[in-house]
Design a binder for these strands. Structure first.
Length: 285
DNA sequence: CTATCTGTTCTGAC
DNA sequence: TGTCAGAACAGATA
């Protein structure tokens, strides 16, 4: 489920809460969700929580790492000794309910009596135990530049686009090997912001349009991070503090409504690369 | 009831 | 090699 802004929001929340803690033991409820040996993790201390693309890496003081991908329905829920919770990921009501529940895949028990629950209804998500070397290789080989990285340039995008000229821009932008962290929601939103049709072939983009794509990507992702991501996918305590980006979405899941750009058109929904895609065919060309 | 949707990504067929 | 359907799975929605 979560894209870059949501994963970043979860990262920041977890960082504040679990860095410095020692993992006493791990309870694996869904074996397919936990890949690797838990004995390589138990007893080690958490050094940092990092993000690359849509994955979270928990770095340990013994040279090991826990790499998480929440996919569509994963949740991470931290619970302190007073049952105060911080949760991120797929929004549903069992955040506030008793844990573990039927969707709980893995439980990390810390030696101070606090816990981290990894829930996943559809079981697409995973947590892998990796060495530093394995982690670095995945981060280097499997993902393109982060949108906030200096290597995310017009020259880079044009060079990648030249090899796949017929690819539609929406599919291009959501390809993690090209750019890290953009998913369905933010691809639609940034293309609206740039006023470019999701159906445009990358070979038919000019330099100033690529510039607009970069500017809109950074603008939209920053806005989403500022608001804590889309949906009520994150909260810090029982009182709320939920993600608020859903109030700022302009086209995603808005089919039928008037174009927010006041061009007189209406937002429609089509399918691009098998994904629901929302845009205004009048002002996005 | 059926059909179709869902924020992800990987695999295998053509 | 590029493109597409389908799979992994469990719901919610119309």
């Amino acid at each position: 489920m979560p894209e870059l802004p949501e994963v970043e929001t979860i990262r920041r929340g977890l960082e504040k809460r679990i860095v410095g803690k020692t993992i006493a033991d791990i309870d694996v409820r869904f074996p397919k969700t936990f890949v690797g040996s838990k004995s390589k993790v138990e007893g080690s201390k958490i050094k940092s929580v990092e993000r690359r693309a849509k994955v979270l890496a928990v770095k340990l003081n013994n040279g090991g790492n826990l790499l998480f991908h929440l996919k569509m329905t994963g949740q991470l829920i931290y619970i302190d000794r007073n049952d105060k919770r911080f949760a991120g990921g797929h929004p549903d009501h069992n955040w506030h309910a008793k844990l573990p529940n039927s969707t709980t895949a893995v439980i990390f028990n810390f030696n101070d009596g606090t816990h981290l629950f990894f829930n996943d209804m559809r079981k697409f998500g995973w947590c892998k135990v990796l060495t530093d070397e394995q982690l670095n290789k995945i981060f280097t080989d499997e993902y393109g530049p982060e949108p906030f990285d200096k290597n995310f340039t017009v020259e880079y995008l044009m060079q990648r686009a030249a090899k796949i000229p017929n690819r539609k821009i929406k599919q291009f932008l959501t390809d993690q090997t090209i750019i890290a962290g953009i998913g369905n929601i933010y691809a639609d939103e940034l293309l609206f912001d740039a006023r470019i049709s999701p159906l445009r072939k990358v070979s038919e983009m000019n330099k100033s349009e690529w510039k607009k794509v970069i500017a809109s990507t950074i603008k939209i992702l920053n806005l989403a991070i500022k608001h804590g991501g889309t949906t009520d996918s994150d909260f810090v305590n029982a009182d709320g503090e939920k993600g608020g980006m859903q109030d700022y979405l302009k086209v995603y899941r808005k089919s039928g409504s008037n174009c927010p750009g006041d061009c007189g058109g209406k937002v429609i929904r089509i399918t691009v690369g098998g994904r629901g895609t929302h845009y205004c065919p009048v002002c996005q060309q």
